[in-house]
Design a protein around this nucleic acid. Structure first.
Lengths: 136, 136
DNA sequence: AGTAGTTTGGTACTTTAGTATGACCTCTAA
DNA sequence: TTAGAGGTCATACTAAAGTACCAAACTACT
């Protein structure tokens, strides 16, 4: 948040500076009006692109990162988290067991524990909840 | 494609017009330089935002929205898509039936069709595939 | 009016998921 | 050293999920 404020302050300052420079440059006749307008146009074109990209990142799908704090808050263990990730890949219990070199029983135990910790009734609901918590 | 060329031609013409108007307005002293620069800045800011949005739409799917083209490409019907969305909310077949005022049998039919169309073996896999296609 | 596609629902069945419980092992901190 | 936590696996069970049919009704288009 602080970074955003800093960036915007600098941006506004730069724009004001640009305005003043261009104004005096034109009045003193040291620069042609076409060049000033061209520079202004290019600068604001870039700013427009930048702002748009930012806003898309903000309310977009773009991954923000995983909330590791939440994972430990929910007391989800490393093994359980591995299983959760495998579930999100759409694997069955047997396939997860295969992938992690464990028996299907073990996976079932982990899944059961996960469902309790995530307060879910099904693995699909666990997925939805985990996503809302930003832990996958 | 023709539309794009037309839009760009008009845009370039408008920009050139703007340049000339602003130049003569300043030289004749009928408008203050600050106002001209401000207008130029705003216009190019908007153009920048517009171009960026266009380019995002162009190379693949827009990072924000849903790839509706892909949905129809996969021949997923409206009802099936509703069911797919309900699955992504972590609902069971019975709950989906409840939500859409349909029997569980009907939901099972829709789910089965969805799995075939998405080439998935399980609903969790369907979810993962649907996400990779950006249709949910 | 007939055809194709969608939607809805059913039965009967197999497979997968999930629960409950108990057992054994390993590691770590009190 | 012993209690606790994490991990592993098993059995037995119930509940969902998914498959494979079938059939009727309801569009929309020709």
């Amino acid at each position: 948040m602080k970074k955003t404020i800093l960036v915007f302050s600098l941006l506004i300052f730069a724009i004001l500076l640009l305005f003043q420079i261009s104004k005096y440059a034109v009045l003193s006749g040291s620069l042609k009006i076409e060049i000033i307008i061209g520079v202004i146009a290019i600068v604001f074109l870039i700013i427009g692109i930048y702002i748009n990209k930012k806003s898309l990142h903000k309310n977009g799908v773009s991954s923000v990162g995983i909330d590791y704090k939440k994972i430990s808050e929910l007391e989800i263990t490393a093994r359980e988290y591995e299983v959760l990730q495998a579930i999100s890949e759409g694997l069955s219990n047997k396939e997860i067991g295969n992938k992690l070199c464990l028996s299907e029983s073990t996976i079932k135990t982990h899944v059961s524990n996960l469902l309790v910790k995530l307060n879910a009734k099904r693995r699909t609901q666990a997925l939805q909840i985990a996503k809302s918590y930003k832990i996958i």
